[in-house]
Nucleic acid binder design. Sequence first.
DNA 1: AGCTCCATTGCCCTTTCGTCCAATAGTTTC
DNA 2: GAAACTATTGGACGAAAGGGCAATGGAGCT
Lengths: 207, 207
Amino acid sequence: MSASLPPLIHVVDDDESLRTALLRLLGAAGFEARGYATTGNFLLWPPPDRPGCVLLDVRMPGPSGLDLQAALQRQNNPLPVVFLTGYADVAASVRAMKAGAVDFLTKPVEREALFEAIQRALAHDAAQRMARAEAERLRAAFATLTPREREVFNRIVLGQINKQIADALGIAERTVKIQRAQLMTKLGAGSAAELGRLAERLRHLPD
Amino acid sequence: MSASLPPLIHVVDDDESLRTALLRLLGAAGFEARGYATTGNFLLWPPPDRPGCVLLDVRMPGPSGLDLQAALQRQNNPLPVVFLTGYADVAASVRAMKAGAVDFLTKPVEREALFEAIQRALAHDAAQRMARAEAERLRAAFATLTPREREVFNRIVLGQINKQIADALGIAERTVKIQRAQLMTKLGAGSAAELGRLAERLRHLPD
DNA sequence: AGCTCCATTGCCCTTTCGTCCAATAGTTTC
DNA sequence: GAAACTATTGGACGAAAGGGCAATGGAGCT
């Protein structure tokens, strides 16, 4: 396993002085950070696939922070979002939190609250990345199975024995054994118990 | 499976006229509902174990709605919470949402928004109940295993075969076979694959 | 046409599993 | 003290799993 890259923090705010202040603050704390004056700028420079999070203003000229949050969610690798806003707007805060924001802070932001939120966002991102990577490995392994092997796999994890599978599929038991051996190799499973565990993990992945 | 009881909605608000209005509105919509003037009243009459949700005012004399939410979370069977508040308070709304509230509505509440939130809360509750019941069944089944059976179980799901388990535990293979058969009966599993699935599900339960 | 991948089958052999028989002994419980 | 539960072992038998060897046939790609 290679150590993952250091996190990159994206600051999206149309208030330039605040933005540069934030970037300075983050830099002083040892974070790498980039600033964007509009949601459009952020989407134009698609961030590299690195751990990180987004500090997002709600009200900006053009598409709002909530719009950008929605756009991020539609991606497959959404970065966690922490909102920063100058206007007390309960409806916006509730909407943002329901959409999965890590936090919703009001300006002026207290240093401590900001860094606490960033820590949680980065932790969230790290966990998400691990889960996504794991899911990807699983999916990739299953993608190498042929239709027949998939069929046999499903019946094995249901507890059927080779003879039952052979009868159900109208083929010889010998054939089932071969496909069973092949799918176990492909999935890297050494036993029926491991097949069951893989099946259960697969079931809990969003299709 | 018995059909579960109809949901019961708890309205906690110190404003009596609003409370009775809400109760009337909910009753007219076909819901069973109860009112409480204070958080203390709610905690004094512990709600029966029924599907439902809580409509909760934030500011009340005595413990606040947020306090009650925290108390509910500490229970093992928390009811989903929908907040209703007369004061626009971003900090409170964010705190409530971070603590898992289903929604945070501001008075005057629109009928539609209220019912939409209630529907989501009840759906959330139903899903939670199913998951909790499932988890309980699993736990109960595992609780009947003896220490030795648990040990054998763990090794089976790791893919070890009887002989390996016997060697590792310093006992005869014959003994392992018996404990294996016993634990499979107790867990209602018919195959090693099912044992693997049970193990994976167990792993994903909060210990 | 040649090659690779997938699906298929039969025979045979070894290992492992699932159970049947019967038996001993420590602990906890009533 | 007896009953119940748990842990333990031995021998033995049939069923199931895993794999080696050899072979056929269709689909798709170069």
